[in-house]
C-alpha cells in the first residue's frame, strides 16, 4: 500500500465523518481504529480529522491544493472497500494549479 505514504503529497487534509453509534458508521469506525495509526505514522503532518456526530452519514472528505474538496459516502461499504475509496481519492487527486493565475 505504497499510496498511503503519498497521502500527504496529494492531500492537504483528510476528514472522516461518522456517527458514534449507528450501524451505518460501524465499518468506518473499524477502518479508523485499524488504520489511523498507520496513516498517521506515515503522514505525521497530514490532518486526519475524525469528526463524530450522531446520526450523520459516514463520509470521507479529501481536501486538495487550493481548497478543492471531494467526498465519498461510506455507508454500506466494508472496511476494505473504504480503504479502496481512500486510495481512489489519493490516486485521482486533481492537478494542482493556482486558480488566481488560471
Amino acid at each position: 500500500m505504497a499510496w498511503r505514504s503519498k497521502l500527504s503529497q496529494s492531500l492537504r487534509e483528510l476528514r472522516i465523518h461518522m456517527c458514534q453509534t449507528s450501524v451505518a458508521s460501524k465499518a468506518t469506525r473499524e477502518f479508523v481504529v485499524k488504520n489511523y495509526k498507520d496513516l498517521k505514522t506515515l503522514n505525521p503532518r497530514l490532518p486526519i480529522l475524525i469528526r463524530e456526530c450522531s446520526g450523520i452519514q459516514p463520509r470521507l472528505w479529501a481536501r486538495y491544493d487550493y481548497g478543492v474538496e471531494r467526498s465519498i459516502p461510506l455507508d454500506g461499504l466494508s472496511e476494505p472497500e473504504i480503504n479502496a475509496k481512500l486510495e481512489e481519492l489519493v490516486e485521482t487527486a486533481p492537478q494542482s494549479k493556482t486558480p488566481m493565475h488560471a
Binding site: Q20, V32, V33, Y36, K37, K40, T41, P44, E52, S54
Partner: peptide, 14 residues
C-alpha cells in the same frame, strides 16, 4: 453535545 469517542491506545501512533 456530541460526545467524542476515544481511540484505543493500539490505534494511536507512537
Amino acid at each position: 453535545l456530541e460526545p467524542a469517542t476515544p481511540l484505543p491506545k493500539e490505534s494511536l501512533p507512537e
